[in-house]
Simulated assay, not measured.
Amino acid sequence: MGFLVWVIIGGIAGWVASLIMKTREGLLINIIVGIIGGLLGGWVLGLFGMAPEGNGLIASFLTALVGACILLAIAKAVLGGRAVGK
Rank of each mutant, 00 (worst) to 15 (best):
L72F: 04
V5W: 06
A73P: 03
L40W: 08
L65V: 00
W6E: 09
R24V: 13
L71E: 01
G67F: 02
G81P: 10
F61P: 04
V33S: 03
G41E: 00
L79P: 00
I29P: 04
G85Y: 09
W15P: 02
I12K: 07
V44M: 12
A59I: 01
S18E: 05
G49P: 03
G56I: 01
V66C: 06
M21R: 15
L79C: 07
V84C: 13
W6D: 14
L57S: 00
L27A: 15
V66F: 13
I9H: 02
I70C: 06
G81M: 10
G37N: 04
L28E: 14
I70H: 00
V84E: 10
F61V: 05
L62E: 03
K76Q: 13
M1T: 08
A64C: 03
M1I: 04
I58P: 00
A59V: 09
I20D: 10
G2W: 08
A73K: 12
A13D: 07
V44S: 09
G10F: 03
V16M: 08
G11D: 08
G81W: 08
V78M: 12
G38V: 04
I31M: 13
V7E: 01
A64S: 10
I32C: 14
V78Y: 11
N30I: 04
A83N: 13
G34N: 09
L4Q: 09
G37Q: 03
I70T: 06
A68D: 00
V44C: 12
G46C: 11
G46W: 06
G42Y: 05
A51F: 13
I9L: 14
V78C: 04
I36V: 15
I32Q: 11
G54T: 09
A77K: 14
I70S: 01
A73L: 14
G67T: 02
S18D: 01
A51C: 05
G38I: 03
I58K: 00
V78F: 11
V7T: 09
C69N: 06
N55H: 07
K86F: 10
V84D: 06
G54F: 08
N30P: 05
G80Q: 07
A75E: 14
G42I: 03
I36N: 08
G85L: 12
G14S: 02
R82F: 12
G49A: 04
I29L: 15
N55K: 11
E53K: 15
M1G: 08
V7Y: 02
A83E: 15
A59N: 01
V44N: 06
G49S: 02
G34M: 02
F3C: 04
G49W: 05
L39T: 13
L28Q: 14
A75Y: 13
G41W: 02
V84Q: 10
G46E: 10
I74R: 10
G38T: 05
A64K: 06
G49N: 02
I58A: 04
M21L: 13
L72G: 05
S60C: 00
V5T: 15
G46V: 12
K76Y: 07
V44P: 05
V78W: 13
E53L: 14
V33D: 07
W6T: 12
V7I: 08
L4G: 10
L62S: 04
G49Q: 04
S60R: 04
